[in-house]
Every structure is written in structure tokens, then in C-alpha cells.
């Protein structure tokens, strides 16, 4: 049992309230990702769950037990830090076996578990090396290995890939996905600001904004039916086109949102002037200027052969229009 229940959790630093009334239910074995802009409180929430930060008020349960006052080492968690946090004066073997030595595990057990984790992460050739002798990717694998060795009920990842280059990030992301497959009973909570990581890894995503939970849902739910304007703008790259005013009113809501891939170029009731294009290989982004709606982004497959300044027709499928009320909440009916 490694389910996590967060009830009315608040965290303040003096007069500054960083987390406000957080309520979350994370099932045992679930992979949940916290996303949100910088300063939204996602790392603080993770640190509250880990026990590295105390909770100002509210309740935190792990495996059915209230752990508000339980020290981090007794919560059955392991954490992978953004900066790896490998102990520089210990080699990989000692780094990975550190928690077991603290627990006074036998030498044979420590050795066996370190070797098992090293095999899982292809770290055997590096066991006698020091962190300074490893590449960024290898260090991150050691950090994950150190967490695996503890056999935790809950895995916490604090932006584990943000120090890696783009290629390595993809490779390590796949490794984490594979790791999750091998640990089906382990609950994983992962903090990132990279929505590709969130969309590809998560069973469910928790979107945080200004210390509040904005929406919780599967990647598909968040993408297909964002509950608020904030989520609509935050999830998806390039961002959803958000249009207010007369143009939106004409489509039945104070504010509407249209994903760039749902903008149909070349046909439709509207006219826009092409201001700029970005070619990405598999597809292109076309930036349009519409006199009433303002600037819009369209995503088209392949290369967009429209000269800048061309005025062209565009439109949207009605079913793909997301409608929001004046407070930014999603309207369920058109």
C-alpha cells in the first residue's frame, strides 16, 4: 500500500502562503506528475510529501498512515534530486549502499541489492568510480539507483532531467518509463516544468498554479478538455490560441481556445495575414494576424509554402473549439 492522500494542505513561509488548500488522492502504483510554471509550488509540495519541508496545516497520509510528523527516512520514500545530490566523497557503490549501511544491513545484503540495482540500470562498470568521474546521464542513473536500493513505496523525482542535454533527456525519460514498468507497485511522483515529460510519462498530471491545484487528469483529459484557461494555455506546445472579445462571442463564449493543429488553413470563413513561419521538419508553425482575433498560431504538416504577407482563409472544426466563461472556467456546453 503506497497510496498518498493530501487533505487541505497549506504551506506558508511567514506571511507568504506558498501552497493553498491542496487536496490530492494518488493511488498506489500510480505515476503522477506535478507541472506548473516556476514558483507555482510544485517542488514545495513534493518536499512536503518527502518530509523535507514541514506542513503548516492540513494532513498528509502515505499508505493510510498520517505522516505529518514522521521524519523523511521513516516515510518509505526515496527521492531523486535535480542536482543528483550524489555524495562526492563516496564511489558509486557506497553512494548506492549508503541508506542500507545507515539501516545497518549486512554487508552481503547491501552488496546484493546494490548489484541488483546496478544491473537494472547498467551501472556495473561504474561501481568503483566517483561521481566526478561520471557523465551527467550516468550520475542521474546512480541517483535513481540509490533510490531503487531502498526499495521505497514512493519514488519522488524533483526535475530529474533538467540538468541533462536534449538527447540524454529523451534517453533517460525512456529509462524512467521502463523503470516504472518494472516497479508496478511503486507510486511515483515527478515534478517537472517540461510538459513533454509530463505528457509522455504520467498516468495523471497535476497542474499547479500560484500554490493551488488547477486541474488533475490524464494527459489526454488535460489536452482534450482543459478545465481552465490557465491549463489550456499551459498544456500543449505551441500554446493553445486563446481568443476573447467579439470574435469569441461570435463563437458562443466570452473566451475560446483552439489548438494550433485544429486551425484549418486554406479554407474557412476567416481571413488572416501570414506574418511568420517556423519549419520544424515534420511540421511547421504558421503565425497569422486576424484583424479581430489578433495573432493566431496554426500547425501544418511538412513545410508551409506561404510567403509572409499572404492573406489566406482559415477556419476551425466547431467540435475542436474550447469554450471558457468570463472567470476562465471551461464551459461544458457550447
Amino acid at each position: 500500500m503506497s497510496d498518498i492522500k493530501v487533505s487541505n494542505l497549506r504551506k506558508s513561509y511567514g506571511a507568504v502562503e506558498v501552497l493553498r488548500d491542496i487536496n490530492l488522492d494518488i493511488g498506489s502504483g500510480e505515476f503522477v506528475i506535478f507541472v506548473g510554471p516556476s514558483g507555482c509550488g510544485k517542488s514545495t509540495l513534493l518536499r512536503c510529501i518527502s518530509g523535507l519541508e514541514s506542513i503548516t496545516s492540513g494532513r498528509l497520509e502515505i499508505g493510510g498512515k498520517v505522516v505529518n510528523q514522521v521524519p523523511p527516512s521513516k516515510r518509505g520514500i526515496a527521492m531523486v534530486f535535480q542536482s543528483y545530490a550524489l555524495y562526492p566523497h563516496m564511489n558509486v557503490r557506497d553512494n548506492m549502499g549508503y541508506s542500507l549501511r545507515l539501516r545497518r544491513a549486512s554487508r552481503a545484503e547491501t552488496e546484493a541489492r546494490v548489484n541488483e540495482a546496478a544491473a537494472k540500470l547498467q551501472l556495473q562498470p561504474y561501481l568503483d568510480r566517483f561521481p566526478r568521474e561520471l557523465s551527467g546521464g550516468q550520475r542521474q542513473r546512480v541517483a535513481i539507483g540509490r533510490a531503487i536500493v531502498r526499495d521505497p513505496a514512493v519514488f519522488l523525482f524533483d526535475e530529474p532531467l533538467s540538468n541533462l542535454d536534449a538527447a540524454l533527456r529523451v534517453a533517460t525519460r525512456l529509462e524512467i518509463a521502463a523503470l516504472k514498468e518494472t516497479l508496478p507497485q511503486t507510486t511515483m511522483i515527478y515534478v517537472t516544468h517540461d510538459q513533454v515529460e509530463a505528457m509522455t510519462l504520467a498516468d495523471r498530471i497535476v497542474v499547479l498554479n500560484a500554490g493551488r491545484v488547477e486541474q488533475v487528469g490524464t494527459p489526454e483529459e488535460l489536452y482534450e478538455a482543459p478545465g481552465s484557461l490557465f491549463v489550456a494555455g499551459f498544456i500543449g506546445s505551441p500554446s493553445m490560441n486563446i481568443i476573447s472579445g467579439a470574435f469569441a462571442e461570435g463563437l458562443g463564449a466570452p473566451t475560446i481556445g483552439i489548438r494550433p493543429e485544429d486551425v484549418i488553413l486554406g479554407e474557412g470563413p476567416y481571413q488572416g495575414r501570414v506574418t511568420h513561419k517556423e519549419y520544424l521538419g515534420a511540421d511547421s508553425f504558421v503565425y497569422l494576424d486576424e484583424p479581430v482575433a489578433g495573432r493566431l498560431t496554426a500547425r501544418v504538416p511538412g513545410k508551409a509554402d506561404y510567403p509572409d504577407g499572404t492573406t489566406m482563409a482559415f477556419g476551425f472544426q466547431p467540435a475542436k473549439i474550447h469554450r471558457f466563461d468570463a472567470t476562465g472556467k471551461r464551459l461544458t456546453t457550447a
Binding site: 521524519p71 527516512s73 520514500i77 527521492m79 534530486f81 542536482s83 545530490a85 555524495y87 562526492p88 545507515l102
Partner: peptide
């Protein structure tokens, strides 16, 4: 973070 990692590890 090094100390925090150690605290999570059980110290």
C-alpha cells in the same frame, strides 16, 4: 541537497 539526500536515506 546532499544533506537532504542523506536525511531521506535515513540519517
Amino acid at each position: 541537497e546532499l544533506e537532504e539526500a542523506s536525511i531521506i536515506d535515513g540519517s
